[in-house]
């Protein structure tokens, strides 16, 4: 049985100007240029986007879940980074 062996590309679409590109899925293609064209035909058939990024999946470096404890959790104890940490007089509390 034949294999496909085309590379997997992840697809990111900006749905409207002013918004971030958002991951929407992936596809198989032979080159970045083709991936971009296929992304147009496969992911924005209904004009869901104004801009597309494609990147070959193997080029993405992702955080690993095994590292979660050291990687994400140390962020938990810094409430002073959030606005809600600061209690101000009611009269200026919309700051």
């Amino acid at each position: 049985m034949s294999q496909e062996h085309l590379a997997v590309y992840e697809v990111f679409v900006r749905s409207a100007r002013g918004l971030d590109h958002k991951h929407v899925g992936s596809l198989h293609a032979e080159s970045p240029e083709h991936a971009l064209m296929y992304a147009r035909d496969c992911y924005i058939r209904r004009s869901e986007g104004v801009s597309i990024w494609v990147v070959e999946a193997k080029n993405i470096t992702a955080s690993q879940d095994e590292d979660l404890e050291n990687f994400v959790e140390p962020m938990d104890d810094k409430p002073y980074r959030h606005a809600t940490h600061y209690v101000l007089p009611d009269s200026v509390n919309n700051m």
Binding site: M1, Q3, V8
Partner: peptide
């Protein structure tokens, strides 16, 4: 297929 590939199986 794309969603299933995230489980470690290829489309082929």
């Amino acid at each position: 297929y794309s969603a299933t590939e995230t489980l470690g199986i290829s489309r082929s």
